[in-house]
Design a protein around this nucleic acid. Sequence first.
DNA 1: TATTGTTATACTCTATAACTATA
DNA 2: TATAGTTATAGAGTATAACAATA
Lengths: 141, 141
Amino acid sequence: MRRSHPPEGEPWALLVRLFFAQRATLPSVASELQLSLAQCHALHLIGTDRPMPMGRLAETLACDASNVTGLVDRLEARGLVARRPSTEDRRIRVLVLTPAGADVRAALVERMMAPPPALRRLSPREQRALVRILKRLLEEG
Amino acid sequence: MRRSHPPEGEPWALLVRLFFAQRATLPSVASELQLSLAQCHALHLIGTDRPMPMGRLAETLACDASNVTGLVDRLEARGLVARRPSTEDRRIRVLVLTPAGADVRAALVERMMAPPPALRRLSPREQRALVRILKRLLEEG
DNA sequence: TATTGTTATACTCTATAACTATA
DNA sequence: TATAGTTATAGAGTATAACAATA
């Protein structure tokens, strides 16, 4: 194996390890809620701030529109989301969460956003330093 | 929407945002190399330190063994991996990278591990602080 | 008997292309 | 003519259950 990536101690290598460690928990959360990863992602995006047209969901998920049709079909069949006609453009269908969908989404966000125990072991000063650094990392992309 | 998850400024919320921002780049790396995400993951795991029995790959990928059969079928059809009989237990098949597979894997790791430009904007002191904090976060799991 | 990997089957995810309704 | 969404179709990922070879 080539050693072209950064060595162990570099910050990025550590972040990647943290990503993978965290990524491993998402499938268990998903199966706990009887959702696929794609459904988790979609449910997370629907019903945040503003109504979600299907086209915008496809764009945000970076997938084809035809894919969203089937994805929403299944979420709708389970009573989690509903299609509503747009009042402005009759071609557009906006997605809304049903009460059941809002509950599942809340449970999902709850578990997804639950900080790992290791984070609580950081001192307040370390937590502030981490927040400051992460904000700088998120400034651009 | 319920506000049960940590508010914006909390370190974990920021890490999750960074996680999703980074995760969004993997599909483009994958399609660049003509690989699916599952194939990326498998290729990354095969050919690291020791030979990889199919059963251990299934375990590490947290998926069923029958899934690994098809996954390896396709990687093998593309000439990236090969099945070898185990010398110790004739039920076991171990996976090895072909030279072409090692090249693709190296390109994958190269791109996956490339630090984002934002990381370079951190001062050396910030980078050291980040490394120290991330090591503490990774101590346990 | 138990374990490793495969096969058969079914469902979900994903894309491309052709289509309908609307703009 | 262009756009939003659907349908048809195909390939990949995933799981369960039944199976063959080996332990």
